[in-house]
């Protein structure tokens, strides 16, 4: 797959069809992958593809990355799950489909965190999203790398995140409250969850608005709770469960539980899952005359 990927990247850069290829490369000791930005066709051998390619690179297509935008039209190496984020960005008018060349990678799953890698991809080191993935064959692409995957996700989603959500749902409100207060108490307000999220593309986040200060910057229970609730609410109907926020959290707050819960609520209320069709707008940003809620009419 790497060979095909590199050849395609080379062709794209040489023809001038794209100016930069956003992909994965090795770190110095070849133990971890890291995002790379290839602008010179001579550098395409830097590109790698393996189960350590966890990062959702669609982040770099957002408006926050002016310097990357300035390089010119990008091609992006993307797994199906990453493409779901690209789709959301397109539906939200962040850029047009033709503004990016999508090199879709067929995928057999990645590791949850790169530190877990021991040389082999086993089910126990894969995140819940991979066990239920319905986009192992990337769905919106300009070019596909890899053999078609024959994986069919289970009919009823399974895995740790779903089990934990179910478990939390069965608890009383006060128990759930106690659970989250405890989890959020570790928050250090580094905002890695926000920065790594391809859908958190606001140039001025509400946390940074200080006239008035809507969200207290202090890492005390009130500040932490208001930040984490705001983050969650802003992702309703948009989050694709890519899991980058949880992966990046230095204090291991189980953000995937919140994300998956929201996804479940949206699925139930609007029968909508984000990131599959770039022509369908997410439910929170559209008005429909046949909305089942009366108050909106």
């Amino acid at each position: 797959m790497e060979k095909t990927l590199r050849l395609k990247a080379k062709e794209l850069l040489e023809s001038g069809e794209v100016k930069v290829v956003i992909g994965y490369g090795w770190n110095r000791s070849k133990t971890r992958t890291t995002p790379v930005f290839i602008t010179d066709p001579a550098d395409v051998d830097t590109l790698v593809w393996n189960p350590l390619c966890v990062n959702n690179l669609s982040l770099y297509l957002t408006r926050k990355y002016k310097e990357i935008k300035a390089l010119g039209r990008p091609a992006i190496v993307a797994k199906g799950c990453d493409i779901r984020n690209i789709v959301v960005l397109i539906t939200e008018g962040q850029f047009k489909r033709e503004d990016v060349f999508i090199i879709g990678m067929t995928c057999n799953g990645t590791v949850y965190k790169q530190d877990l890698w021991k040389g082999e991809l086993t089910p126990n080191i894969m995140p819940t999203k991979c066990h239920n993935c319905d986009v192992r064959n990337p769905h919106v692409t300009d070019f596909v790398v890899g053999e078609k995957s024959t994986f069919t996700p289970p009919e009823v989603p399974t895995g740790m995140v779903y089990d934990k959500v179910k478990d939390l749902d069965s608890k009383s409100q006060s128990e759930r409250w106690a659970f989250w207060v405890k989890e959020f108490s570790r928050c250090v307000k580094c905002y890695a969850c926000r920065q790594v999220c391809p859908l958190c593309y606001c140039e001025r986040c509400i946390t940074e608005k200080n006239m008035p200060q809507w969200i207290e910057t202090s890492a005390h229970p009130r500040g932490n709770l208001s930040w984490n609730l705001t983050r969650a609410m802003h992702l309703v109907g948009r989050c694709t469960f890519c899991g980058e926020c949880e992966r990046s959290c230095p204090v291991n707050i189980p953000l995937n539980l919140i994300n998956q819960k929201m996804i479940g609520v949206v699925k139930e209320a609007f029968d909508f899952k984000s990131g599959y069709d770039e022509k369908t707008h997410p439910p929170m940003i559209v008005f429909s005359p046949d909305d089942k809620e009366n108050f909106i009419k």
Binding site: E67, I68, R194, Q195, Q213, T217, S248
Partner: peptide
């Protein structure tokens, strides 16, 4: 260029010591 601008590195760093004063 790949830096995403989170503060995780500075928050875990034993020598980073910048702070902000806020009124709440």
């Amino acid at each position: 260029r790949k830096c995403i601008g989170c503060g995780a590195c500075t928050f875990v760093c034993p020598t980073c010591r910048c702070f902000d004063i806020v009124d709440e």
